[in-house]
């Protein structure tokens, strides 16, 4: 076990520490996840059958229909949301969920952006920790 520090920018600030669900392909929350348990239901996705609930969900960028924000809000309400998310780029569609969950539901889902190179490096990450006000994450490999 080794812990390394990776520079990132926080799209939404917060602290969290959780295990990682890593995907190399883009992801659509709408039509891609069962909000009741956080399990990925898109059979074309590399994470098919795995749960993102309570995990640090890593996927490079969002894709597809724009219901993503509400799916994340509902997951936040049901307690099945990821603990945090990491993307290369977080588009407004994805960020809306954590932003509104933060303001209106009092659930903090920090979102970090890392470089494409660092994203690849994190493939074997076991745990990742987020820190309020920091510009890095700590990764246990």
């Amino acid at each position: 076990m080794e812990t390394i520090r990776i520079n990132c920018s926080y799209a939404l600030k917060g602290s969290a520490k959780a295990e990682v669900l890593y995907a190399t392909d883009s992801f659509s929350f709408w039509g891609g996840v069962d909000v009741n348990d956080g399990v990925i239901t898109d059979r074309r996705h590399s994470g098919f059958g795995k749960t993102m609930a309570g995990k640090v969900f890593m996927f490079p960028f969002g894709r597809g229909s724009s219901g993503a924000g509400t799916m994340i809000m509902e997951m936040a309400r049901l307690g099945t949301a990821p603990a945090a998310m990491i993307n290369i780029i977080t588009d407004p569609v994805i960020l809306t969920g954590p932003l509104i969950a933060n303001s209106f539901y009092d659930v903090n889902i920090p979102v970090a952006n890392v470089s494409e190179e660092d994203f690849k490096k994190l493939e074997n990450a076991k745990k990742i920790e987020f820190f309020e006000g920091a510009d890095y994450i700590e990764v246990t490999i």
Binding site: G69, T70, P92, V93, L95, T96, I100
Partner: peptide, 11 residues
Amino acid sequence: TNRYAGPLELL
């Protein structure tokens, strides 16, 4: 328009 996610467009 950008790709907004509901309910952000409502806001």
